[in-house]
Design a protein around this nucleic acid. Structure first.
Lengths: 225, 225, 225, 225
DNA sequence: GATGAATGAGGTTTCATTCAT
DNA sequence: TATGAATGAAACCTCATTCAT
């Protein structure tokens, strides 16, 4: 990690936790202090998972980094797995919030795509450690399912822009899902390679990515062969 | 895994192994039978890692699936990690071989890109389980390094086509590395989503991917705004 | 537990507690409310120990069921072990009280045995959950000692009847302790099997138990009175 | 434990083990050495559970007593619980075997009961530590079920004798199950009190127990044969 | 070459108990 | 009195690796 990244956790969220009370799940009310501790653990864990991998990072390492006893972890989280799941969900919520904020009331769907790509690059730039978490999550069935579910809303947002643009004849006809996935995949991979690996300027990466993606989507392209 | 995928291992390769014997590393010569057993273990392990994850899959499970004792594993591989590293390398060699074979003597660089995308989709279709392996490998530093190294040659192949096309004025000017990464990232993500997740027809996916990518690369696009 | 059983705790008892405060043991005076809370905890704990076992039942579960914080537990009890010890003592006191009440001034020792068996069956019927507590307590040295000590008085009561009956020539000569243990053992096991396991009618079980205890298996028994 | 008791495990039994092989249960073949080690662990564990209780005795203590590493335990047993279950089953098999051997071809059902009681007392005398195991097992639902199931055969054996004797008019009419349970309960409790607690002579205990069971407490019993 | 057995550090999780508020 | 938070030892169990046979 070349520079400290902003946490993805909103400490005001989550004033209560789900815990196991002998067989049935109950909700535990947390004090202000409790909420802060919980957010701290989420943040520390996210960074350690990103740095060292989910499996290789032990609960012991997490609590040690937080400077608390081992029991604290299980006071706030049902399991290591539940913690990771929550990190994934929180990250996606944070990313989508940023994308939404960036769109404002922009009426042009193509412009909305551009703004979304720009917001995404900036968010990744600030939360660079999340790359590895998503990457890993994709690789194990249970977590991949969480990811898909968490990203569904963002996917639909983007697909809406694509459909609108298509209806306006601004972009080529085609399967909207396929095109949207192309947009997302390209954005993600370029972010990984140029923002995460090389720490390039997010504005520049976004601009180049937009160029590639928009030409890819455009109607009336130059003839291919 | 919806259907049985072809192994990525060439059993003729690897007629000797590096192993630890009495403290120092030594090279072991393998018989024909030995080479087959080794290839079998690589194949079984690859599938199990893909299905259940690298860390969650234990050496015990691998040897059990192979129907051999635990000692056999360490007869052929230095460690679980070395085994995985080898799987990654082998997979990339296999993929590149397929891409190379597809290009033939095609003189047109743009056509070479198209053929490469098509070959890639077909290869992923046949080795679908490899997706998870690559995805996971990206997420842990040590394995990510292996991946980057293994994929460097393929990357340079593709970049050569891009540069040539650019020199011929067939595609837009721009950072060739950036454009090549865009091509690769888009191809990979679309393969993941449509070939792995949905088992779509690789020819169709390749065709749609090529359309998106080539328009993205093209010179003289339709005006954006 | 098929039906709610009566608590074995007398909330009027125990107006003060022994607890550890600053390193030394001190006696704490309890208010009326305090005594009730204490009795409530004893009762809840007894049922949970019976249902789920002493060791598997955690203090956390007990206080959760009582709807109080964890500190409360240690305000009223020195430890989980002390709590269980007290449950055992209370249960035996309650049982003996019932047995005593049943005897009245009955002059016939044999009749007294019968009345004792009947009272015991009824008590077990009302406090069915106690079976598991006694059973468990027998199995761990420290608790077994508490049981033996708590049951000594009841044992001596019963043995007095046996000795009197023997002196009157009403029952066979023999080791009074042995015969008394036989009476107790038979009563206990039959209660377990027919009252706890099958929820049979305590009057019927008592009657059949008395017949067995007095006459054994043989046909043509000596007339009872 | 005042004296060393004979193990209840037959090391020739059990040439294979059930173990978990990732989700599904598989059977593992054991070598002669493996079978001995397994029997040793069963025996050591049984004694330690009896002495210190099932829950308080840790797997660490068991393997330490056996002088082996912790992994060995899980090589031979699926879990601590599975081990205990097996101890319970083995003990009941051993007890029943002894009872059966004692009966020979004895035609008289009453005599068979007597011989059964005698064999039981001797078996308990040799396997005294089993008392606590049974006692504890009774107290937790899951293990109690195992006990009931394991003892069903012995119960039916004894009930057959009771029914025969009843058919011959040798013992009183009554519910055969009730009477059989009375026999078993009395025998068990007396064994516990006089053989386990006091280390009395099993022959004497058996004789007094038989007298009580056959005649009850009454003087002038009906003649036995 | 191959096997079953063994190792033991280390993993996740639980829990009796204490303490600051 | 009472609470939520914290502790940390210790529980059960896993697993990469080694080894005797």
């Amino acid at each position: 990690m070349r520079r400290v990244a902003a946490p993805v956790i909103d400490p005001r969220r989550g004033s209560s936790v789900m815990v196991r009370g002998q067989g049935h799940v109950m909700t535990r009310q947390l004090t202000q202090r409790g909420r802060e501790r919980r957010a701290q653990l989420l943040d520390i864990a996210a960074r350690q998972f990103a740095e060292g991998g989910y499996h290789p990072t032990s609960v012991a390492e997490i609590v040690e980094a937080a400077g608390v006893g081992k029991g604290v972890f299980y006071w706030y989280f049902e399991s290591k797995e539940a913690l990771f799941t929550e990190i994934l969900r929180d990250a996606n919520i944070s990313l989508r919030r940023r994308q939404q904020a960036a769109l404002g009331n922009e009426p042009d769907p193509i412009r909305r795509l551009e703004l979304g790509i720009l917001a995404t690059m900036h968010w990744y730039h600030e939360h660079r450690y999340v790359f590895n978490l998503f990457q890993f999550a994709q690789s194990e069935t249970e977590f991949a399912a969480i990811l898909v579910e968490s990203q569904e809303t963002s996917l639909n947002d983007a697909m809406r822009h694509v459909k609108e643009a298509m209806a306006e004849g601004r972009i080529r006809d085609g399967d909207p899902l396929f095109l949207t996935q192309a947009v997302i995949g390209t954005t993600g991979h370029l972010a990984r390679r140029f923002i995460f690996d090389r720490d390039d300027d997010p504005d520049e990466v976004a601009q180049m990515a937009s160029a590639f993606i928009l030409h890819g989507l455009m109607a009336q392209p130059a003839s291919v062969s």
